[in-house]
Every structure is written in structure tokens, then in C-alpha cells.
Amino acid sequence: MKLPFILNGDDVTLDGDTRESLFTVLHREAGVFEEKTPCLKATCGRCHVLLDSKEVPSCVVPFFQVRQREVVTPEGFRQTDEYRRFKAILDDEGLVECAECTDVQIFHLFSYLELFPHAGPEECRLVIGEIPCRCGSRPVLERGAARWVERKGAARVSRR
């Protein structure tokens, strides 16, 4: 079954079985997630993608559901200006990159803040805690999230 969809801004047509997950097809056909071994239980965050701008674990999304939709992977997200701005804030807060979780956390947290731009500190803490890692970068991410929410809020006010 060949399905057309948009992958990181490009029109693509990938081949997969109805029962395969989006993760499996992206990994095999498009070389995405090559360096990562996800849990395939929708809990580790390593296979998350944006599907029509909503963050989803690609290991539980059936491939047939992506027809004519837009998929952005963490690799694609890293090419955006929004990523650079968010990362700059985190770097400013003293982020020490963790090979296991940093990319996943940034993608996860940014996606959540896009959906819930008024998220409070407690809410952000819960969301950051959804990605399991012991690297100790959570306080940095929490501070970065608070600054991002504040900056976005200020931008909204100035637009008015």
C-alpha cells in the first residue's frame, strides 16, 4: 500500500502494510529514527512526531492514517526557527545535553506548549516528567518552559 503524505515539508509516497505503525514505515522507508530504539509502548517519547501539528507516538499510529496528512519528525523540527529560539532559551538556562533525552524532551515540551500556551509550572513539570530519564536536566527544562510561556504571552499582548 503506497500512501502520499507530507514529511518534513516534502511530498513523499511511502510503502507499508495496513498493520504497520507509522514508526516502522518511517524507519524502514525514510531512514528516520535510525539511531534510536524506542520502547514501542508509547511511553519513551523517542518515536514522537507531529501529525498535523499534534505530537503523537508514531509507534501506535497505524500507517494507513497518514494519507494526505503532514508529519514532522524531530529531525525536521530541528531545522525550524522556533526550535532554535526555544533551544537558545534552554541553553541560556544552562542545558547540558543528554544523548538519551534532550532532543526528545525539547520536541515533547515544545509541542505541549504549542497546544497549551498558558501552561503553568506544575503542568510543565508533569509534562517534562512524562519522558523518563535520570540525567537531571528537568529543572533547566522547567525554567526554560516558564520563560517560553512568558515570552509567547508578551508577544500575544504586543500583537494586540
Binding site: D17, T18, R19, E20, S21, T24, L40, K41, A42, C59, V60, V61, P62, F63, F64, Q65
Partner: peptide
């Protein structure tokens, strides 16, 4: 088949276990 999340947690594997005839509501 709606979100499919409960379905997957019941049948964790590398492929998606779908019934022989599936109506996806996405």
C-alpha cells in the same frame, strides 16, 4: 478504531493489531 491507544496497550508489539474489518474514525 478511534485513537487506538487502549488497543495498543492491550497488544503491545511492533505491528498494529487490527481486526479483520476495521472502521477507523480518525
Amino acid at each position: 478504531f478511534a485513537g487506538g491507544t487502549a488497543w495498543q496497550s492491550d497488544y503491545l508489539s511492533s505491528s498494529i493489531r487490527l481486526p479483520p474489518v476495521t472502521i477507523s474514525l480518525h
